[in-house]
Design a protein around this nucleic acid. Structure first.
Lengths: 222, 222
DNA sequence: GTCTATAAGTCGATAGAC
DNA sequence: GTCTATCGACTTATAGAC
């Protein structure tokens, strides 16, 4: 008998991890309605869990948001770090293409591993990135190494880049791609990844060429 | 005596337009907390208006959202149309730069006219653009001429562009710029526009060069 | 066009059983 | 670790006064 047949299941459960259940549900609801619009109770109802169980594991809604961010973000960020370090330490002459790929590939891998949840997670990232929500701000500022890695990798690929242009160019590059990825389920606009059909290599190449050509062209004199 | 000195003002008002008051407040709250997280009552409280007055003018929350979208969006969209038509009908050879400027300038003008509200409006656009919220979907699909204008302008600037690449490239271009604009108040990343300091022409040029070089480079063979 | 008053539901938080 | 039960505050929606 499936859950949600009128009333909620009762008593403790041991078949599935409550944490995972809540995180999956939160990822979906946060992406669909915005994290501020989802109550603990609604979350618990959809996850088929008692409201107090959510509070026990995550304290409050910000705690749930933090955990949702970290679950997939941790590994993706480690991959970005590693890839940027590759660009910095590459023996030959790394190209703008390599740099863009370093920033994009970890998220394509994330989508390949978790098509549905990964896309929801990316939509959530996309929205949080314009807010100054404390959870987001803390997540960003806690990564002390990233700015240096950015500067190093960008300087390697664009030798004449002014120091103050690096965050600007990084902003343009990362968020043009994030915008495209987060819209991957909207038909018509085109997307590097279609649910069920996997990665569209042709479109990924288009996005990468757009980003790398943009980086190179942005620094040319007007 | 200022408003909000403990209790709310009472009785009908005639000094300021209630619609404008509510729209300004909604623009701010929607941008800060997400449109789904703002209740009619909270909106009315912050606008110093009775909840039923909001419902009278806008029916429900989606009605408020629709009105907020239209208030600034109408004019910006007309400007985009006109500028794209200019590119299509230009006598000489329009450049990718002209195309990017056609998509960006109307929103820079909006920010110049209404620095604070304009930025909030852009943040709201940015968030709505990844949702499939009915209000957003209707607003987008109601503009039947835009896709044709896009195709015409892109084909004029990029003669060899495949038809199915136009929406993809437009997506990349528009949302790389929208992402930058929507983050205009976050220090560090750099922004084409700083509250109080006006438009940073140098950064705008950087953004435009990024977009136009990206468009041209995206179509080159790998 | 704007208000008060009210009915029925939902919210976060917490105390306490098992 | 998960549950039930319950608090006051908040919510939408509607009926009706002026």
């Amino acid at each position: 008998m499936p859950a949600h047949s009128g009333t909620r299941r009762t008593g403790p459960r041991s078949d599935v991890d409550v944490r995972t259940l809540v995180l999956d549900t939160a990822e979906r609801l946060f992406a669909e309605h915005g994290h501020g619009a989802v109550s603990i109770r609604q979350l618990a109802r959809d996850a088929d869990v008692a409201p107090t169980a959510v509070a026990y594991h995550f304290d409050d809604r910000d705690g749930v948001l933090r955990a949702v961010l970290v679950r997939r973000g941790q590994e993706a960020m480690l991959r970005v770090h590693a890839r940027l370090a590759d660009v910095v330490g590459a023996p030959g002459t790394p190209t703008a293409n390599d740099l863009v790929r370093a920033l994009l590939d970890p998220y394509l891998e994330l989508l390949a591993r978790s098509p549905v949840g990964g896309l929801r997670w990316l939509k959530l990232m996309y929205v949080l990135a314009t807010s100054d929500h404390p959870v987001w701000r803390q997540a960003v500022s806690s990564d002390a190494e990233l700015p240096g890695l950015y500067r190093g990798a960008f300087a390697r690929v664009l030798p004449d880049v002014p120091a103050d242009a690096v965050p600007r160019l990084a902003n343009l590059t990362v968020y043009s791609m994030l915008g495209v990825l987060a819209r991957a389920d909207q038909p018509g606009f085109g997307s590097p990844w279609t649910p069920g059909a996997g990665v569209d290599e042709e479109f990924v190449d288009l996005v990468v060429r757009f980003g790398s050509a943009g980086l190179l062209g942005a620094l040319e004199a007007t």
